[in-house]
C-alpha cells in the first residue's frame, strides 16, 4: 500500500555524520516542558552541560569511551545476575559477543550511570548531583565525617551536623528491616542506628547510616522525611557525582516515598546528545503528544525492575521474522542506566542481518567494544540509515530516533548501537 505511513516507514534517515559526533559546547533545550509538577534538569555526566565533567571542554578519549561501554556490560551482567537469582537460574553465562570476558559479580546494578540530576538536601539545603537510576531503589549520598572513606566529588560533601532537619533511623524501624529486600544486604546496627550497605555490579559500594532528611526537588517541591543512605564508606566508579537517586519499584525508592504527592508517576526525557539537556518530572503532566502505554510485565513483578513485553522489531520498515517466544522466554526490562539495548541472540542476529543488508553500500569498519556492526564513513558527508522500531504489548511502537540507532565513535567508526545477549534465556 502506497500510503504516507508506509512511505514514512520505509524511508531511511538521512544523516549528516558531523551531526552525530560529540560537541564540546552545551546547547540546553530552550523550551522547558510545560508542567505543573516537579521537573529537574537532566544532563549527561560526561558532556559539556555537566559541571561534573572532569574534562572541561575536552572530548573524552577513545579509551574512556571504551570504558563507558565496558561499564555498560557490567551493569547488564549485574541485572542478569539479580534476575537469575530470583528465577532460580543456576548462573549467568558471560556474553559471547564481547571479545574480553568481563567477570560477573552479583550485586545491585552498577552505580556509574550516565545521567545526573541536581537536588537539594537538608536545611539549609545543599545542592547535590545524583545519578538517576531506575534500576535501584535506595538513594544515597556521601556524608561527612566519612568515617571510613569518601571518593572525590565535585560538590561539597553533605554534612548532617549542619542540617536542622536531619535524623538517623533506628534499628527498630520497620524500614530498617526492609533494607535487606531493597539492597540484598542485611542491615547492621551501630549504637541503635540502622546501617545500610549497597554493593553494585562493578564492586562499587556505599555503606553508612539510614537517615531521613528534607529533600528539595524544586523550590516548590519539597519532600519531608525522605529516607536515604548517608554514606560513610563509599568507593567506586561514581566519578564526581555525590551519590545516587533510586527510582526503581521498591518501597524505599523516591517514587514510593513521594507516592502520595506524585501518584507514583514520573517521566524523563534524556538529552538527545551529550551536549544537550533533558528533564526528569514527577507527577502526571500532559505531554505535547499523547503517551502510548504498555503494561509492566508480570515476569519482573517481584523484582525492582520495570519489565516490558517486547513483541517485535522492524528494520527498514519490515517486521523481522522473529518468533514471539524469543522475546517471551527471557523478557525485557527498561533501564535508564543501561546505554545499549541488549536483545536475545536470535533477535539481535535478525536485526544485524537486516541492518547490514541495508547498509551494504558502505565500507565496514572493525567492531568497537560490545558493538560489532561498524562502518567507516571517512570522506562521506551524509548517509542513509534504516529506521528501527521496537514493538511492545498493547500495540506500542517506539521508532528509535536516528541518534539512538548509530553510535558515532569517530568519522571512521560509526556503529549500530545494539548488542546481543550471550544466551536466549538471559
Amino acid at each position: 500500500k502506497d500510503t504516507a505511513d508506509t512511505r514514512h516507514r520505509y524511508r531511511p534517515h538521512i544523516v549528516k555524520i558531523s551531526s552525530l559526533l560529540a560537541s564540546n559546547v552545551c546547547n540546553p533545550i530552550t523550551e522547558a516542558p510545560h508542567h505543573k509538577k516537579a521537573t529537574l534538569k537532566v544532563v549527561h555526566k560526561h558532556g559539556p552541560c555537566s559541571h561534573l565533567n572532569q574534562l572541561g571542554d575536552q572530548k573524552m578519549s577513545a579509551s574512556d569511551e571504551i570504558k563507558l561501554l565496558e561499564q555498560d556490560q557490567l551493569r547488564v551482567n549485574s541485572i542478569h545476575s539479580q534476575l537469575s537469582k530470583r528465577s532460580g537460574d543456576p548462573g549467568f553465562r558471560g556474553p559471547k559477543s564481547t571479545k574480553s570476558a568481563i567477570p560477573v559479580r552479583s550485586g545491585q546494578t552498577i552505580g556509574s550511570g550516565n545521567y545526573i540530576v541536581t537536588v537539594g538536601l537538608g536545611t539549609p539545603k545543599k545542592q547535590l548531583s545524583l545519578v538517576l537510576d531506575t534500576g535501584s531503589a535506595l538513594s544515597w549520598t556521601q556524608c561527612e565525617p566519612c568515617v571510613r572513606y569518601c571518593y572525590a566529588q565535585k560538590e561539597p560533601i553533605f554534612k548532617p551536623l549542619e542540617s536542622t532537619s536531619y535524623a538517623n533511623v533506628s534499628c527498630a524501624s520497620e524500614l530498617c528491616n526492609a533494607l535487606e529486600s531493597t539492597t540484598g544486604v542485611s542491615p547492621g546496627c551501630i549504637t541503635s542506628t540502622c546501617e545500610y550497605g549497597v554493593q553494585y555490579g562493578d564492586n562499587s559500594y556505599s555503606v553508612g547510616y539510614l537517615s531521613k532528611e528534607r529533600l528539595t526537588l524544586t523550590s516548590s517541591d519539597v519532600i519531608e522525611n525522605f529516607y536515604f543512605g548517608c554514606g560513610q564508606n563509599n568507593r567506586g566508579l561514581f566519578r564526581g557525582a555525590a551519590g545516587l537517586l533510586g527510582l526503581s519499584r521498591d518501597r524505599l525508592s523516591l517514587i514510593f516515598q513521594s507516592g502520595k504527592k506524585y501518584g507514583r508517576y514520573f517521566s524523563y526525557c534524556l538529552p538527545s546528545s551529550r551536549s544537550s539537556t533533558g528533564f526528569l518530572s514527577f507527577g502526571y503532566r500532559r505531554p505535547r503528544k499523547a503517551f502510548k502505554f504498555t503494561p509492566l510485565s508480570s515476569l519482573t513483578k517481584d523484582t525492582q525492575f520495570y519489565g516490558l513485553d517486547m513483541t517485535g522489531i522492524s528494520v527498514g520498515g519490515k517486521t523481522l521474522p522473529i518468533t514471539a517466544s524469543v522475546f517471551s522466554k527471557a523478557g525485557t526490562v527498561i533501564d535508564s542506566g543501561t546505554v545499549i539495548t541488549r536483545l536475545p541472540p536470535k533477535a539481535y542476529d535478525a536485526v544485524r542481518k537486516a541492518f547490514r543488508q541495508l547498509m551494504s553500500d558502505y565500507k565496514a569498519a572493525q567492531s568497537y567494544s560490545i558493538l560489532d556492526t561498524c562502518y567507516d564513513f571517512t570522506g562521506v558527508e551524509s548517509v542513509f540509515v534504516p529506521k528501527i522500531s521496537f514493538f511492545f504489548s498493547g500495540g506500542v511502537e517506539v521508532e528509535v530516533d536516528v541518534s539512538g540507532i548509530i553510535y558515532a565513535v569517530s568519522q571512521s567508526q560509526v556503529c549500530l548501537a545494539l548488542a546481543g545477549n550471550g544466551d536466549d534465556s538471559d
Binding site: N114, F293, D335, N421
Partner: peptide, 30 residues
Amino acid sequence: VGIFGNFQHLKWEVAYDVGKERVGFSPSAC
C-alpha cells in the same frame, strides 16, 4: 533478559506510571 537501554530512549519521553503498572512513550523534542 533483554534490556531496552537509554540510547534507544533518545527523543522519547518515557513515563513510568507505577500506580497503574504501565510504561508510556511519547515523541519529544528533547
